[in-house]
């Protein structure tokens, strides 16, 4: 069974999610829904200005969902911490697929990319 091989990371993140929780005074935040299953995802981002750079110093997500939506939220929040917000423009579905490392079928795209939707809804000006 191939899931034993390829889903280890996803299962591990299901057991021990990274960056799950809230940020008290976020610079950006958003709410997303997956209409397929009614799942909800909240995203919180804190940025800091240093000179002419604006850097993401904290990113957290909250909400219940399937293992794939939870894993992609853990992975993407981890990925964006430390990025300059101008680098957010490089973030797309391909990156999320790469981070997850498992094939995402058409019917699971909504789950896998829910975190991307949440990031878009944060309306960070460099990521549109």
């Amino acid at each position: 069974m191939n899931y034993d091989l390829y889903s280890q990371q996803i299962l591990e993140l299901w057991r021990n999610p990274i960056n799950k929780g809230e940020i008290k005074n976020p610079t950006y935040s958003s709410n997303s829904n997956n209409p397929l299953c009614g799942d909800k995802l909240e995203l919180f981002i804190k940025t800091k200005k240093t000179g002419r750079q604006t850097v993401i110093v904290q990113a957290k997500f909250n909400g219940e969902g399937c293992a794939i939506s939870q894993a992609s939220a853990s992975l993407l929040t981890t990925h964006i911490i430390g990025l300059n917000i101008s680098e957010l423009k490089n973030i797309d579905t391909n990156l999320v697929r790469k981070l997850l490392g498992v094939p995402i079928s058409a019917n699971r795209e909504k789950c896998a990319f829910l975190i991307l939707d949440a990031l878009e809804r944060c309306k960070i000006s460099n990521f549109q």
Binding site: E64, C66, A67, R108
Partner: peptide, 9 residues
């Protein structure tokens, strides 16, 4: 376990 994960496995 989320129902999507049940269906997935």
């Amino acid at each position: 376990v989320h129902s999507h994960d049940v269906a997935w496995i």
